[in-house]
Design a protein around this nucleic acid. Structure first.
Lengths: 315, 315
DNA sequence: TTCAAGACTGCAAACAGTTGCACTAAACCT
DNA sequence: AGGTTTAGTGCAACTGTTTGCAGTCTTGAA
């Protein structure tokens, strides 16, 4: 079923059929509806590959994340997909398995078949990214990059809220269980968390950004004698709570723990995790909007504190 | 950068360039390497839209799931993506938000721009699906469908293993906390679970397939006086454990609970959930392999029991 | 030496749309 | 009435590749 079949069946030229789909206002209402009904009968759908060939726009977007199975990403992917669909775009989703090389390779592979790609927390160097930005427009989430639209989530502010929350409950010594060394996020958190007056911050790390990393930090948290903890993310927090439990320390009775991200497992955890909610859905949505509208902005999204059951006043 | 630029720069005809990429054995080794280096220098990459136009194959696949954010799906998506990449395919991922209408609409939209789609646990009627199968090849996961390749996971067997595990621990009365009415999976589980000798099965349901659903069933589980429970899925199991806790019943000391799926939150839960592991990754991988190789098979994948901390001998 | 068979390569016609330009007819001015 | 604008449509060139066919050149066999 091609445009020519429809043209023949409805007695008009192909260009008219083409226009009833891509520029409906240019064709007479009567003609248009006739063409449309014929197209409907024949089950015609424009071939996007052919359209892409002439227009240069594919109506496809790429989304690259480090690990689809990491609970942090799915809500972001979901929101990005919804936003894309709303404007009749399709979304390629790709997974780099945390390897920077795969990131570059994927962007290259996407370059000719998408109108843009959204990159979540890229691991590649700035230099590589800037070079790639010449081949395909992209927007970056969770990283500052010259020459590309950027969507940031203000973790710093969230971290500050978290520490203030602990301070408000009466905690005076708080541990920061950090993530991997050299992480942009980790630095942001550390700087912001250190600025809360009346709270002494003990930095414990670096740690793997996983449950295991948190579990492994439990011993040092106990030794530090703090009454409150801000963890690098929810997985670390969950692992830490388990580790503390094994050492005979109850959360929140003995130690309060705050996570960051607000992933599903944190909500299901017992005690339910107090955490800094990252607006991942908003970030995904915004990123594709920026991409489609080709605006080169840097946006910073608000984070907020969600108080649940893993924090309480110290003994 | 088109094929013509490369042809000009390397002094051969476009068809030769085309062949060095799509049928390398047909071109002289010397010519080939010259073309390749020129292409590399110029940063040429074949335009897939143009290629798709002539060959009719897009080298894209579609993957449709009900809800990307449901922890059941990400591992499947990840595996499907990896399998696709391995054969140089790209993967569109789409989310129906649990609406059958969206499912149909998406398949239609994909039809002209993918070589096939994998459908996870479709909600549409058989009739609709069979009609759609004429427009685009697909493989279905978790549903039997005439005329389409099918990948099943043997939940029935897994459910049986779970109940046998409980029986082995000494449980004689076991509750089945079911899912929504009319679910294929729910029926499979029920039938298989009922066939274990020496165990009396109490069916409690239907319930929403969520944490909330499990939470709400706690009261009835207590009233039934069983010592073991098989839940419709891990989320239900997690909710149930929480609900039982609120009623003063400890898991596994007072009641043993087995889930189904083996999702990440179950692993992080306390107590760690004993569950029937669904081979979602294998299913995703297999589905795209079947799709690419165009084989119309029905495959049933093994499930297995993962024993963790939510089951023990009854008091 | 001649002929046949390969191995390469070039030619040109698809593939399914889009779009600048030209044309016609009707509507609008003055 | 004559000229000008405007709406609607057709024409044909173009997008970047693939691929059947035909041609050239080498190689091998008889």
């Amino acid at each position: 079923m091609t445009i020519r079949d429809v043209a023949r069946a409805s007695g008009v030229h192909v260009s008219t059929v083409s226009r009833t789909f891509s520029a409906p206002h240019m064709v007479n209402a009567a003609t248009r509806s006739r063409v449309l009904t014929v197209a409907e009968e024949l089950g015609y759908r424009p071939n996007r590959a052919a359209r892409a060939l002439t227009t240069g726009r594919t109506h496809n977007l790429g989304l690259i994340v480090a690990d689809i199975a990491n609970p942090f990403f799915p809500p972001l992917i979901k929101a990005a997909h919804a936003a894309a669909r709303q404007r009749d775009y399709h979304l390629f989703v790709a997974d780099t398995d945390e390897e920077p090389a795969a990131e570059e390779e994927l962007i290259q592979a996407f370059s000719k078949q998408v109108d843009g790609v959204v990159l979540c927390s890229p691991r590649s160097s700035n230099k590589v990214l800037e070079r790639l930005a010449e081949r395909v427009p992209f927007v970056v989430i969770n990283r500052r990059l010259r020459g590309a639209a950027t969507v940031l989530m203000d973790v710093g502010h969230g971290a500050r809220l978290a520490v203030e929350h602990l301070a408000g409950l009466g905690h005076r010594r708080v541990a920061l269980v950090t993530g991997p060394a050299g992480s942009w996020t980790s630095d942001e958190i550390r700087t912001a968390a250190g600025q809360v007056p009346g709270v002494e911050l003990v930095v414990i790390g670096p740690n793997a950004p996983t449950e295991r990393g948190g579990f492994g930090a439990a011993e040092r948290v106990r030794e530090s004698g703090v009454t409150g903890v801000l963890a690098y993310n929810d997985l670390v927090a969950i692992g830490l709570i388990e580790g503390l439990g094994d050492l005979g320390l109850e959360v929140p009775a003995d130690v309060s723990v705050v996570g960051i991200d607000d992933i599903v497992p944190g909500r299901l955890n017992r005690p339910k995790l107090t955490t800094v909610a990252m607006p991942t859905a908003a970030a995904g949505r915004l990123a594709v909007d920026l991409l489609i509208q080709e605006v080169a902005a840097t946006t910073s999204l608000e984070t907020r504190l969600v108080v649940r059951d893993s924090t309480a006043a110290p003994r």
